[in-house]
Computed example of a mutant assay.
Amino acid sequence: MVRKETLASLVDKGRRKIQVTDEELDEAKRRRRLLARSALRAFPGSTTYFNGSIAHGDANTPLTDVDLGVVLTAEDAKPYGPGKKSALSLMETVRDVIHEDLDEEFPKLTIEVVGRRRAVLVRFGDPVTNGQPDFTADVMTAIPHPSGCGLYIPNTKIADQWDRADPITHTKMVLQAIEDTKVIFARTVRLLKHWNGTHSKPLCSWNIKALALGCLGEPMPLVNALQVFFTHAADEINKGRTPDPAGVAGPIPLNMTRPEVHKRLCTARDYINLAIEHEAAGRPLSAQHALHQILPELVPDANATQEEADRLASTVRSGGTAATGLGLAVGLVTPTRAWGI
């Protein structure tokens, strides 16, 4: 007999499959602390900040990288910025100090500066997750923005050599959303990042989180959080690129054309709606089959042939259409925004 599971159970089991282990996190955070210590030694009086998946609480296994930044003092930053010096010398300085501090512990460590757009790339030559080829870190050398709002971060691919951004505020917003939703925000993002990776990566991870900040502001079942996200994200991408939640940087770039990204979001929205509709109607195998289309590696497929045949027969008997396809769900949770646009 086929075991029938609820969508809640299937989603929860799926997210546990990709949940990062304590051992991975502990070692990644230890290496991050080592890098932060080197950055502070390279630039006395500076401050460091953490961002990315580990800082945001949404890291998946395997854990392959970590992100951090160092912000120079206003005095030390004076020679740098748009129309002034690029970040190249800063990147070279932090590279040299990291080598001095970590070469002994990590004999295979290499650090790339040339050709890097934003950050020094540290390759430890020693993975955190067993079976992975390596573990890396992006170390950003940033300067305060003259307005006092956000930072200037390197961008070696443009004439000005610097972009405006606010990664510190981004992290604060994400952590607040995790608290407001009682961890549902982070768990949803983990699943969404997995969905993204198995569907040609239409969005970068930050775009996923920025969109989620616009609709996930309170606790709700994880299945409904996915439904809310895909509904909101499809609507927002249909309007245009996602604005910076901190209101500092420009719109977030997409990895595909906007119509193509919109199409993928709509397909996921329709499948999650269909899964919820099937479950509400007492068709658990059909619900699981629909959810599998969104998270194929996390949710096993189910043979819903008999359920679908019964559904079609019932539809015909009631005078409706027997057409198959993606349906529309009932009971959609109303999205709540975390910031005003």
Rank of each mutant, 00 (worst) to 15 (best):
P300F: 04
D134C: 10
R117Y: 07
V97I: 12
H99T: 14
R30W: 05
G125T: 00
K29V: 15
E24D: 07
G247L: 04
R118Q: 13
S205Y: 01
D103V: 14
P221K: 02
H170Q: 04
A249W: 09
Q227V: 13
D134G: 10
A137N: 00
T169G: 12
V20T: 12
L63H: 03
T6S: 09
L72Q: 04
Q19Y: 00
R41C: 07
I272M: 15
V189C: 12
N155S: 09
S46N: 09
S89R: 00
A309P: 01
G148Q: 09
F106Y: 10
R241A: 15
D138G: 10
L191A: 03
S53T: 14
G69F: 03
I208L: 01
E218H: 05
E104Q: 05
R95I: 10
G247H: 08
G148E: 07
V2G: 06
P259K: 11
K85I: 04
A212N: 07
P154Y: 00
N273L: 07
G240R: 05
M1Q: 12
S46C: 08
T47C: 03
L40S: 06
H56N: 13
L68I: 03
P335Q: 00
P82G: 00
M140E: 10
L10F: 02
G247M: 12
V174C: 01
G52H: 01
H199N: 08
G150N: 02
E105V: 09
N238K: 13
D65M: 01
A28C: 07
S318P: 11
A119P: 13
N255M: 15
A287Q: 11
A186V: 11
G325T: 14
A304S: 00
A233S: 13
K182W: 06
G125M: 08
M220E: 04
A42V: 03
V139Y: 03
S9W: 00
I276W: 10
A39E: 03
F185A: 00
S205E: 07
L211R: 00
C266I: 15
D58T: 13
D160A: 15
C204M: 05
W195T: 11
R269N: 15
T267E: 10
T136A: 05
L34K: 12
L121K: 08
R187F: 01
V299N: 01
Q19E: 05
H199T: 11
A233H: 12
N155H: 09
P146R: 01
D166I: 09
T198H: 01
E297Y: 08
D160H: 11
L121A: 09
L175R: 04
P127A: 03
L312C: 13
P202C: 05
A142K: 02
L10I: 06
A309Q: 05
I237A: 12
L326S: 12
K172L: 14
M256D: 15
T336D: 01
I178E: 07
R33G: 14
G150W: 00
R15W: 13
G340A: 03
G214N: 07
D163W: 10
L90H: 08
D76I: 05
A8G: 08
L285D: 13
P335Y: 03
K108H: 13
